[in-house]
């Protein structure tokens, strides 16, 4: 059903945001955001905590009213048509709070009665996949298990657009993997997914395109490879003897340093020149680490500030 609906409306972009501004008093939480999410793609919305991701998402769902700019969900304005449009949208909130005196099953049943499109028949199948006990009171569930209840409610909703705000917080790696499988299944069925996260690596494996948000503005956007090429990584190489000083000349490196048997550098863009330079050298160990998002896109932020 979801696939059919999504195909029939493929010409209308599920989500378009133009010049979105949201102020809280004098604080500007969102400072002019433009986005266009295409039908059938997984769109990553990445930024450090406090960058304005949740504020943007709450505006899209009409929980907050924009101070400026406009939002179109399937071509319609959520501030005037929100109830109808949300039939096609499912949401997992970032700061998750669920009703407490009900079981997971009762909560899902309740949501199923409110939504016209809800796959009641798949409740147990999905609970099984997420190893979730639906008959426990939500109050007694761990934060990870509460998260699963919310994720289930969104994926059972048979929505054309899934808006997932930090959906994997509190999930263990196995469950994160299962979650990403579910995202790919929904995309294969024709749905569009808008996935926010403060961890780039979590989004990059599943997203088609992404936008990086910082301090209420988009600082980078494009395909995963395009954005990935802008991110910085920490490289550390240990050699069997003193590290060769020639490595300091390799292009694409910042802060390169040699210290005894150790070579350190920050890499931006392609890793190819460094790998080529390392080829054949007596390496004992190598680590390439992705720093947190704030640091990974430090270069972009600095350019932006200038």
């Amino acid at each position: 059903m979801g696939a059919m609906t999504a195909t029939a409306t493929a010409t209308v972009e599920p989500l378009v945001v133009q010049g979105l501004v949201k102020n809280y008093g004098k604080v500007q939480a969102v400072r002019g955001i433009d986005l266009a999410v295409r039908a059938g793609e997984v769109f990553g919305f990445v930024g450090p905590n406090g960058a304005g991701k949740s504020t943007t998402i709450r505006c899209i769902l009409d929980l907050l009213r924009p101070s400026g700019g406009q939002i179109r969900l399937f071509g319609r304005d959520p501030s005037t048509d929100s109830a109808d449009i949300r039939e096609r949208v499912a949401y997992v909130p970032g700061e998750l709070r669920l009703p407490e005196r009900v079981t997971g099953r009762q909560f899902l049943t309740s949501i199923g009665r409110i939504r016209r499109r809800f796959e009641r028949g798949r409740v147990d199948e999905l609970a099984e996949r997420f190893k979730l006990d639906l008959d426990r009171n939500i109050r007694h569930l761990s934060s990870g298990n509460r998260r699963k209840v919310a994720v289930l409610s969104a994926f059972l909703s048979d929505a054309d657009l899934l808006i997932l705000d930090e959906p994997t917080g509190g999930l263990d790696p196995l469950m994160q993997h299962e979650f990403l499988r579910l995202v790919r299944e929904r995309r294969a069925a024709g749905a569009t997914v808008f996935l926010s996260s403060h961890i780039l690596s979590e989004v990059q494996s599943v997203a088609d395109r992404l936008a990086v948000l910082r301090a209420g503005q988009i600082v980078a956007s494009g395909t995963v490879n395009e954005v990935r090429g802008l991110a910085r990584q920490h490289v550390e190489v240990w050699f069997e003897a003193d590290a060769p000083r020639g490595l300091l000349q390799v292009p694409g490196l910042d802060d390169a340093a040699v210290d005894g048997r150790q070579f350190r550098a920050t890499l931006t863009g392609s890793a190819r020149p460094l790998i080529d330079a390392l080829n054949g050298l007596p390496i004992s160990s190598i680590t390439i680490q992705e720093p947190d998002l704030e640091e990974a896109f430090l270069g972009l932020y600095q350019e932006d500030d200038e």
Binding site: L61, L63, L98, P99, A150
Partner: peptide, 14 residues
């Protein structure tokens, strides 16, 4: 205020 209403406010109802 506790955020518990949000799960319902995001549903297709006014």
């Amino acid at each position: 205020d506790s955020g518990r209403m949000e799960a319902y406010l995001a549903q297709p109802v006014t």
